[in-house]
Nucleic acid binder design. Structure first.
Length: 824
RNA sequence: GCCGGAGUGGUGAAAUGGCAGACACGCCGGACUCAAAAUCCGGUGGGGGAAACUCCGUGUCGGUUCAAGUCCGACCUCCGGCACCA
């Protein structure tokens, strides 16, 4: 026997990668044969400079699918690009003195090398970087069109400010009390900025979730909660001490007769007015100032408030109730004022107990009677109304409808909808982002830049300021410009756009990444969109994935796309965990993909990330597990190379040429494995079990070959099929072995193996026989045996007869091919 | 607190209501070797038994069913999301 070449992944893989760079696997350009199309996309990375294990996992899932789908005859669009604007480039610039643009493009180059080294089959000719003017010029155009339609607008608002990032953040980008990048504190600040009217699409975004059957329920639920639609009534409570009325929002109109006070937020415009009118200006001011200076956590400690000295009138019963300023009322939700029903709202209950305000029960639960004096908590569920005039005796459900009706008839209120969702604040007080294309003119105010003047190019020859602030406001040559309207002197907007704006439409641009006369080619959009399968981390459930759904609809309404939902199917992969924690520098448990690839090769890295867990679960990184994957590939290597020097016959020998029983069994197993792997990759997306099936086949081939010198057609067919099934997971080693043993068409040009269903049919099946639910025997019966024959066979078993000991079964169940169940 | 998801060997995990633990890691044993590594073969949920076998076993307690990891009800634990949203 000749000395076998050792498995040397590094040498094999780099050689194949060079070949693939010259002749990419069937790309997805507009020309070519008509075939079913598949847009497969993975969330594009921020070019930090290095890929991490999360990327390896995410992109391996995508690449396995891409290679599989190509073999199945699809034309696959599988692009890769760079989410290239963002703060780390500025931080690096300050720390290391490299310009953000240079730093970013160098990182992109480095990461592209890493991705190629993994063997990922991207359509590199679609590559894009969002920091390129050829990309963001279209975003600026969209912005101008949104401005015209009122979707983009400017307002002064209380917003989240991240001290460390030196910028404003959207609500979605604040998690707990820290910013999404992990910084704290995030404080509240009142500032002028640009917003996109996502709330105008709240209903559509919410209802659209029902059409997304290909999304995980978890993500849909998260978006539903985030949008937070609630139906209720807005009621005007006339003010006693001044003119006008206090507008409140409630979902519990059925408790209206239980109102014993009203509360308004510290930021409510009436706070000052009511304080003055009620003669308690000093107290109110002091309270408001104290509350407003608190950070969100501090503010969430307990319920407190101050009486304004003023009252409002309950429209349904004419009662005067006091108005308080309360720390727990949010200005940002509803009207910033609430009617308070202590008996039926826990917050109001706490507040009423603290300040000695009356508690009035107006909803009684079934089966017991609430007494205000003995209540220990508010009763918040539905019940039957009491002490509610004409509505007494009605159920809560009915009363909500009837009272709303009554208020509407008297002009005292109207039904309305409220959302938890806020408009998307996109202004960032940062340098490394897409400039917002407007100017500020002393005479004309805010004036949009003409569409023919785009792009407003971000200057790249800048000096970053040591303090971290954006250099744009002080960059006179850039910031000073002419007003497009009056031609007078004007200053450019120095805020840049949230980088989530770029990622909200990149998947559309991939279909015509190099087009420079328009953002999209309508024909290409129609051809590819929506994305058939999108893969990424669940952390973007209410960030990128919500923004993209919104942006797609805006572009639809602007006439750019004909599409409601951008992503038909979504796969959210779990995190990569090591030693029980997410990989992070601070925990010191990071595995560097470069080290991994150097030691084991890309194929092993790919195989392990697919084998260790199903994609949606967290993946526990294990050095031993990686080693196991490497050993499996080595095992395949040795198995296949045993044939070196002889041409391996890879065709199915067919049922006829089977020479002995073992060969027939092996051939059946090959087809069974094709069936399993095809289903696991194509339908179930359980790549781990697909790999397990291939391993079983390899084990079976080893079993058959044990002790044999000669290798029959079935063994050769099985070995070749292993290479074909394993190719999407480990493209390098399989390509290498295929070329050495078979040559002919390259493995990645070959169609996916077909299942011969007739090969799956067995003559006999083994079935379990249960007596009273316990397996007592096994019988081997012909597959086409009737139920009666199977039963007779089972009853004839000695063990079964012993169990029966002469009794006759009370009931029998025969599931052909599975088992026989006998009940005594 | 509310909303999701998950609890299966020593470990990662697998199982259209039909023989729980496929596949892999680890461990144990054997072959090869002067020896070790690598490799190949075998064993490996727990209890009992020399063995044939046998009993128990998928977070807990109930239920439906000839049959439940899987369906239903209640609960416990862990993870994730939201969190004074009126």
């Amino acid at each position: 026997m000749a000395i076998m070449d050792a498995y040397t992944p590094e040498e094999i893989e780099t050689r194949w990668q060079r070949r693939w760079a010259d002749a990419p696997p069937m790309d997805a350009g507009p020309e070519g044969p008509e075939a079913p199309r598949f847009y497969l996309l993975e969330m594009f990375p921020y070019p930090s400079g290095r890929i991490h294990m999360g990327h390896v996992r995410n992109y391996t899932i995508g690449d396995v699918m891409a290679r599989f789908l190509r073999a199945r005859g699809y034309r696959v669009l599988h692009p890769m690009g760079w989410d290239a604007f963002g703060l780390p480039a500025e931080t690096a610039a300050i720390q290391r003195g490299v310009a953000p643009a240079k730093w970013t493009y160098e990182n992109i180059d480095a990461m592209r090398v890493q991705l190629r080294r993994m063997g990922f089959s991207y359509d590199w000719k679609c590559e894009l970087a969002t920091c390129h003017p050829g990309y963001y010029r279209w975003e600026q155009l969209f912005f101008l069109q949104m401005l015209e339609k009122g979707i983009a607008y400017r307002k002064k608002a209380v917003v989240n400010w991240c001290e460390q990032c030196g910028t404003v953040l959207a609500n979605e980008q604040v998690e707990g009390e820290q910013c999404w990048r992990g910084h704290r504190p995030v404080t509240q600040k009142e500032i002028d900025g640009w917003f996109l009217r996502i709330t105008a699409y709240a209903d559509e975004l919410l209802d659209g979730l029902d059409t997304l059957g290909g999304w995980p329920e978890k993500v849909r639920t998260m978006q539903r909660n985030w949008i937070g639609r609630s139906y209720g009534v807005q009621i005007g409570f006339p003010l006693v001490e001044c003119e006008g009325a206090l507008e409140v929002f409630t979902t519990r109109a059925d408790t209206l007769f239980g109102v014993t006070f009203a509360s308004i937020a510290a930021e409510h415009p009436l706070a000052e007015t009511l304080g003055a009118a009620g003669g308690r200006q000093a107290e109110v001011r002091a309270f408001v100032e104290r509350i407003r200076s608190q950070d969100p956590t501090e503010r969430a400690q307990g319920k407190e408030g101050v009486f304004t000295g003023c009252h409002v009138v309950n429209p349904v019963n004419g009662e005067r109730v006091p108005v308080y300023v309360a720390n727990f009322v949010l200005m940002g939700y509803g009207t910033g004022a609430v009617m308070a029903v202590p008996a039926h709202d826990q917050r109001d209950f706490d507040f009423a107990r603290r300040y000695g305000i009356a508690i009035r029960v107006v909803v009684q639960p079934p089966g017991r009677e609430l007494e205000p004096d003995t209540m220990e908590a508010a009763y918040e569920d539905d019940g039957v109304l009491v002490a509610s005039a004409a509505f007494t005796g009605k159920t809560s459900e009915q009363a909500r409808v009837d009272i709303a009706q009554h208020l509407r008839a008297n002009g005292e209120g109207r039904t309305t909808v409220n959302y938890r969702l806020r408009d998307w604040g996109i202004s960032r007080q940062r340098y490394w982002g897409a400039p917002i294309p407007v100017v500020h003119c002393a005479d004309c105010g805010v004036v949009p830049v003409g569409a023919d003047q785009l792009p407003v190019v971000l200057p790249t020859d800048v000096e970053l300021l040591a303090g971290g602030a954006s250099p744009l406001p002080t960059l006179e040559s850039w910031v000073n410009t002419q007003c497009p309207r009056c031609a007078g002197p004007a200053r450019r907007e120095t805020d840049t756009m949230d980088t989530f704006v770029e990622s909200s439409w990149y998947f559309l641009r991939f279909t015509a990444a190099r087009l420079d006369t328009a953002p999209f080619d309508p024909q290409e959009l129609a051809r590819w969109l929506p994305v058939d399968h999108y893969i990424g981390g669940v952390e973007h459930a209410v960030l990128h994935l919500l923004y993209s759904r919104f942006f797609t609809r805006v572009l639809r309404d602007l006439g750019w796309v004909r599409l409601d939902e951008p992503f038909r199917n979504l796969l959210t992969q779990g995190m990569v965990i090591k030693d029980g924690a997410k990989m992070s520098k601070s925990k010191g448990n990071v595995v560097d993909p470069d080290d991994l690839v150097r030691t084991y090769g890309a194929d092993t890295a790919r195989l392990f990330s697919m084998f260790a867990a199903p994609p949606e679960k967290d993946l526990d990184w294990s050095e031993r597990g990686v080693d196991g994957s490497y050993r499996f590939l080595s095992r395949v290597w040795r198995l296949a190379l045993a044939f070196e020097g002889r041409a391996l016959v890879w065709a199915d020998p067919g049922a006829g040429v089977v020479d002995d029983e073992g060969a027939g069994k092996l051939r059946s197993l090959v087809h069974e494995t094709i069936r399993r792997v095809t289903r696991d990759i194509g339908e179930r997306r359980h790549f781990n079990t697909a790999v397990a099936a291939i391993m079983e086949l390899v084990n079976a081939i080893y079993d058959r070959r044990a002790g044999r010198v000669d290798d029959d057609a079935a063994t050769q067919f099985a070995t070749a099929t292993v290479l074909r099934l394993l190719a999407p997971f480990a493209p390098h080693i399989t390509s290498e072995l295929w070329e050495r043993l078979i040559g002919g068409p390259a493995l990645d040009r070959l169609p996916w193996p077909e299942v011969d269903v007739s090969a799956l049919v067995r003559e006999k099946v083994e079935m379990a026989v249960q007596v009273n639910g316990k397996v007592r025997a096994r019988v081997s019966v012909a597959v086409d045996a009737s139920e009666a024959e199977i039963l007779a066979c089972a009853l004839a078993e000695q063990k079964v007869a012993a169990e029966l000991s002469g009794r006759s079964p009370r009931k029998t169940v025969v599931v052909p091919g599975r088992l026989v169940s006998i009940v005594l």
